[in-house]
Amino acid sequence: MPGAYLLALLVSAAGVAALDARGRLVLWRRPRRAAVAILIGTAFFLIWDAVGIATGVFVKGGSPLLLGIDLAPHLPLEEPVFLAFLCYLALVVHAAALRRLHTRATRGRRA
């Protein structure tokens, strides 16, 4: 089913965004800073991918789950979407972990 991987990425990103919105962790706390961090992270990993593709380390496998649209040789459309999702997920997990640690430290001081 072409597009299933992209659909899975978008549904997963929507789930992470819902958790983010509920906890006001990243995008709902500081949207401009979060967007810049996601863009910088995505750009970094795209450059990493370009180097890997140029050296022959990364190649696109044939999968019926991809749309079949390539942005460059061996760089499917889904790759930057995945990289942006990865960066967003990392930011949300980091913010949630920091909040959890802060909550624990605050409770520890009260006891």
Rank of each mutant, 00 (worst) to 15 (best):
M1I: 14
P2R: 15
P2Q: 14
G3M: 14
G3W: 15
A4D: 14
L6M: 15
L9P: 10
L9D: 05
L9K: 12
S12Y: 10
A14H: 13
A14M: 13
G15S: 10
V16E: 13
V16S: 10
V16A: 14
V16Y: 02
V16D: 04
V16R: 11
A17L: 15
A18I: 12
L19D: 01
R22Q: 14
G23L: 12
G23N: 12
R24M: 02
V26H: 05
L27T: 03
L27A: 15
L27H: 11
L27C: 10
R29M: 03
R30D: 15
R30C: 04
P31Y: 04
R32D: 14
R33W: 05
R33V: 11
A34G: 09
A34K: 06
A35R: 04
V36F: 13
V36G: 10
A37T: 06
I38P: 08
I38T: 10
L39V: 11
L39T: 10
T42C: 14
A43Y: 07
F45S: 11
F45M: 15
I47F: 11
I47Q: 15
D49G: 08
D49H: 03
V51H: 09
V51W: 14
G52F: 02
I53A: 07
G56W: 04
V57P: 03
V57A: 08
V57I: 13
F58S: 05
V59I: 13
V59K: 12
G62M: 03
S63M: 00
S63Y: 07
P64A: 10
L67R: 00
G68C: 08
I69G: 00
D70N: 09
D70Q: 12
L71A: 03
L71Y: 05
L71D: 01
L71F: 00
L71Q: 04
A72F: 10
P73G: 03
P73E: 07
P73D: 07
L75T: 00
L77K: 04
L77V: 07
E78H: 09
P80H: 02
V81S: 04
F82M: 04
F82D: 05
F85H: 03
F85L: 15
L86A: 00
C87Y: 02
Y88G: 03
A90F: 04
A90W: 06
V93G: 09
V93N: 00
A95D: 10
A95W: 00
A96Q: 04
A96Y: 13
A97I: 06
R99V: 11
L101H: 06
L101D: 07
H102C: 01
T103H: 14
A105F: 04
A105K: 14
A105H: 11
A105M: 06
T106G: 02
R107W: 08
R107I: 12
R110F: 06
A111W: 06
